[in-house]
């Protein structure tokens, strides 16, 4: 049978914008609408909310009963404690400052992070749901290697091994699905992760690693100390 049309199967709306549905005789034409099961907000949701809130407070009260908020010596501008630490959520930043000049660690990097977070929904890369190696794997690989190489050079230059090691580990993880094409399993799952997922995860890993190091592993003169030798 001669065909005067071409059927391409693809779920990607960008590549195959128009779709034709063939309805064969055997199946009845009907749209299967998924009927979402609805429940009343009161009491189903509200009860859950209240229980969650109560449990939250119970936990908080128990912590507050047994752990006292710190109160150190009265402020003394003439004596800088060693090390002087910011609150824990800034210790990642403080750790960055240890490696980079203040303008980079204190202004540019945190500024970039906030901007990057804000523009996430407006960047097309974040709307893609395909695994990062799905389209143009070669091109992607080159871009990827160039980027990782650049980052490696910069981090090595400033001796930021705390960032470099996790970065390289993650890069290796990213490359696994490129070389081992497999459906299913952990590798298959990794292969379906889009680029935006990798970038965000990289950011989270960095934030967690730096904050942990700054909080637990830094002592006088911002030297490396093990937590069991005292948390400063």
């Amino acid at each position: 049978m001669a065909k005067d049309f071409n059927v391409e199967r693809n779920s990607d709306a960008k590549k195959v914008p128009k779709r034709i549905a063939f309805i064969k005789d055997r199946t009845r034409a009907r749209v299967r609408q998924e009927e979402e099961e609805m429940v009343m907000t009161v009491p189903n949701l509200v009860a859950k909310e209240i229980i969650a809130f109560e449990i939250l407070i119970i936990v908080l009260v128990m912590v507050s009963l047994f752990v006292d908020a710190p109160l150190e010596w009265i402020a003394n501008p003439e004596h800088t404690p060693n090390p002087a630490k910011a609150p824990w959520y800034f210790l990642g930043l403080q750790e960055l400052l240890h490696y980079f000049p203040p303008i980079v660690g204190g202004v540019i990097l945190p500024g970039l992070v906030v901007v990057a977070l804000i523009i996430i929904p407006y960047v097309r890369i974040n709307l893609k749901t395909d695994g990062m190696w799905k389209d143009y794997p070669q091109k992607t690989l080159i871009g990827f290697l160039v980027f990782v190489g650049g980052v490696t050079v910069v981090l090595a230059m400033f001796h930021v091994y705390a960032m470099l090691v996790p970065t390289l580990l993650m890069s290796a993880l990213m490359l696994v699905p490129y070389f081992v094409r497999r459906e299913g399993g952990v590798i298959g799952w990794l292969g379906t992760r889009p680029l935006s997922w990798w970038v965000m995860t990289w950011f989270v890993v960095m934030a967690v690693v730096l904050t942990t190091i700054g909080t637990l592993f830094r002592g006088p003169e911002w030297r490396w100390t093990w937590p069991w030798n005292g948390i400063y």
Binding site: T80, A86, G106
Partner: peptide, 15 residues
């Protein structure tokens, strides 16, 4: 207004 506060804020505002 203890040492923790004072130097925590001093470190932060120095950034």
């Amino acid at each position: 207004w203890d040492q923790l506060s004072f130097w925590g804020i001093s470190v932060g505002t120095n950034m």
